[in-house]
Amino acid sequence: MVKKFIALTVLCTLLAIGISLYSSKASMQTQTIPEDQLGTLHGFAMDAQSRGEYEIDLAKTIIFEDAVSLDAAIANYTVLAATPIAKQSYVLDNYSIGTWYKFRVNETLAQKPLMLCSGCPSPIPDTVPPDMLPLNAGEILVLQPGGSQLVDGVTINISVADFPDFTLNQKYLLFLNLDASRSIGSLQVGPAGAYMVDNYGGLSPIFQLESGDNPVWDGLTAQYGSNLNQLRNTLNPPPPPPTCDQVEEQSCYDRGGTWIFNGCYCREPNPDPCTQQPWREPAMDCGPAY
């Protein structure tokens, strides 16, 4: 009886310890951090150090602006093809790491003024890291959330769901809320506003999509065959073909000449070898050959 009682007691004790450990597991990390450091980068670093870790991965999720549709995105945002040529992650404040990209603009397909909404903070950061400046002509800066930085000896990696980092020297089609006066763009619609461009103008999204998941991509596919060249030709149609005087052109042909479109002039035919005059109708007999 005593043995049974002891066994039962030990079992209960183990059970209690197990439940206690289970219930406190998720909150253990907060025990060693001062309350005013919770949620700060320093707090995450302290937490990692307390576990003997020197690198941590955190996953960020952000509500972006809804692009609504491709047409709305084109109507509201600056659309450009650009290539990132430099990037650098920074600790932006106590809570955030961000990565600044310097893009070289390949072409601007549509330019729109900076869009601000009432009661909202500006989408454009107030300050720019000095080492990303100066900008050459045709260069812009874009801030992407997340990145990696060393904080108190701990490497903190912050990734953003659906929003991988840009690859240097890869061309992208971007829908930006652009402050043209400061050459700073905001990726306001998030990953739905960035597409990779291949050497043939083919577009592909930067994140894995389920069918119907992204109306901007659906529009690019349905209306422009997922091709930058088709989008460009629609947004910036080429100039009309050269127009020449059709009467003059017809006259050129009637004389047997060749009409040169690029310049709208007639290359006169070779002269009649008999008369050294332009060909006439009917053709004259040259007489016997010598």
Binding site: D57, A59, I85, A86, K87, Q88, S89, T99, K102, R104, V105, N106, D131, N136, A137, G138, E139, G146, G147, S148, T155, N157, I158, S159, V160, A161, D162, F163, P164, D165, L168, P191, F207
Partner: peptide
Amino acid sequence: GAKPHNIVSGGGYTDPNPIPD
């Protein structure tokens, strides 16, 4: 996490001979 960003340091990569635009 889409994928972690690469760590860049020392001011990041800058094309030494950028093509003017």
